[in-house]
Amino acid sequence: MSFLEFKNVEYSYVGGDDELIQALKSVSFSIERGEFVALVGCNGSGKSTLARLCNGLLAPDGGEVLVDGQSTTDKRALFDIRKKIGIVFQNPDNQMVTTIVEDDVAFGPENLGLPPEEIRERVDWALASVGMSEHAKSGPFRLSGGQKQRVAIAGVLAIKPELMILDEATGMLDPNGRREVLEVVKKLNRDENMAVIMITHFMEEAAAADRIIVLNKGSIAADGGKELFNTPEVFEGAGLDLPLYVRLARRLNDAGMDVGCPLTADEFAAAVAKAQGGKK
């Protein structure tokens, strides 16, 4: 049994004039504990909808979503499911529930019924992990955009979920903050076997994941490992770009060099240096 399973999931929103807006069409995939998955797709392709279906915030119109074998439409299972799956949403404003930052971060662990000492420990750790310790007593509405985003991330870290979904959660962080948050998430993934679904518009970030799921107009267009980048049509067909390294490498290959398909900055530099060595 997989940790998370989507079976032929359908979802439509009801628009203003009762028109149906189909957001997901027959989506099937499963995710195991400890996986690190990037979810990519154009604006409006259904990524956030998929995230909301994972923990039962939305119920599928067709098919099922199972978490440890329990359906998200089973009301009794929902509490359990939300303990296991934490989501950081695109807009942090919608996630703040209290008037003090540290209370906001404590909200999740309190709901889990943890003892006070452990709550304290988790809140301190989560705020430190995102570099917001000095703002613990501040009001969440007195923060800059990026600071709010960090608090929202801390709130989910403090739950220590088994699956963390980051819905463009680092989109408004400065480059440093972005790297720091990704480091914390990777560490939890490595050391605590936390599964991660990272929704991102940065293809370079996606290239660093173990597995990439590509959504196109509500359907899964591709689901695989790094080898997906050898078939650029997959990304182009879904209206996406390739990572910078792959774009440059393809152009260089077309110009007569042989640099393969590097997926990180270091691989890229090494491949070019090697190709230069071969020339001289």
């Binding site: 440093n176 890229f268 230069q276």
Partner: peptide, 20 residues
């Protein structure tokens, strides 16, 4: 200033480090 490099510039710096 505590500013990070653009990715393209970072690649250029790395390439230099490897003798390109």
């Amino acid at each position: 200033c505590g500013v990070e490099l653009p990715l393209v510039t970072e690649l250029a710096v790395k390439l230099n480090g490897l003798g390109v």
